[in-house]
Amino acid sequence: MAHLNEQQIGQLRQMLDKRYDELREELHQEVNDRDGYLDVATEAPDPGDASFANLTLDLDNAATTRDVTELHAIEATRVRIEDKTYGTCVDCETAIPFERLKAQLTAERCTPCQEAYEKKHLDAGRGATI
């Protein structure tokens, strides 16, 4: 993290905090919306309504999983900031450029290592990437 100055770290922390708050609000909204769809799914005498409600619940579950995964990534990033490993690639230990960190706040790898990781791990494309 030596390549990041205090101002950059402060800016990244602020961005992380903002995104964390946004995700928590999205999750809160998703839970509230899900309750309404559950009511429709359990009461719906019409198969079309029930099918739509079930599809909506499936999509909400995927969105919730994505948001929770990102919240965990933000929490892990905060730990890396505290232990001064944030901004250092977990694979090659080179500095991750500030611009990349601004674009992908939770980046653990430099771009070349992230590309290599995604080629080796098909599931890696499910989360945030380059």
Results as ranks from 00 to 15, higher is better:
A124T: 09
T88W: 01
A124C: 03
Q8C: 05
A44L: 02
R24T: 12
T94F: 05
D46I: 07
Q7F: 06
T129M: 15
D21W: 11
Q11H: 08
D60R: 14
T111G: 05
D39H: 11
N61W: 15
I81L: 02
Q11L: 08
E22C: 12
V31L: 04
A107H: 01
E30Y: 05
A103D: 09
D21F: 10
E70A: 03
E6G: 03
R80V: 01
E82F: 13
V90G: 04
A124W: 10
E108M: 14
E93W: 11
K119W: 15
D46R: 03
A95E: 13
D83G: 09
C89K: 03
S51P: 02
L55N: 04
C110H: 10
N61M: 15
P47M: 14
E99Y: 00
L38W: 02
T65K: 06
T106N: 03
H121G: 12
D123W: 09
A2R: 10
L105A: 06
C113S: 08
R80D: 01
I81K: 01
T65H: 03
G125F: 05
K18Q: 00
C110K: 09
T85P: 01
L122V: 12
K120S: 11
K18P: 00
C89Y: 05
L23W: 00
R19A: 03
Q104H: 03
V68A: 12
D21N: 11
Q11I: 12
E43S: 03
V90D: 09
Q11T: 07
R109D: 05
E108Q: 14
D91T: 08
P47Q: 07
Q29H: 12
V40E: 04
C89T: 08
E26Q: 08
G10R: 15
A53N: 02
D35R: 03
K120I: 14
F52Y: 06
N54I: 09
E82V: 15
P45Y: 07
A63I: 08
E118S: 00
H72T: 15
V90I: 08
H3I: 09
A53I: 01
A124M: 05
A124G: 06
D17G: 09
M15P: 01
E93S: 13
G125E: 11
L23H: 02
L101I: 04
L71K: 00
E26I: 05
E22M: 12
R78D: 15
L27S: 13
D91V: 09
G87F: 01
F98C: 10
G10Y: 15
M1I: 13
E75C: 00
T77M: 09
E99C: 05
I96L: 01
E6A: 08
I130R: 06
R78A: 15
E99K: 06
R80P: 00
E70V: 05
C113L: 11
Q104Y: 06
T106G: 04
A41W: 02
S51N: 07
N54Q: 07
K119M: 15
K18N: 00
V79Q: 10
T77W: 09
A62G: 13
A62H: 12
C89F: 02
T88N: 08
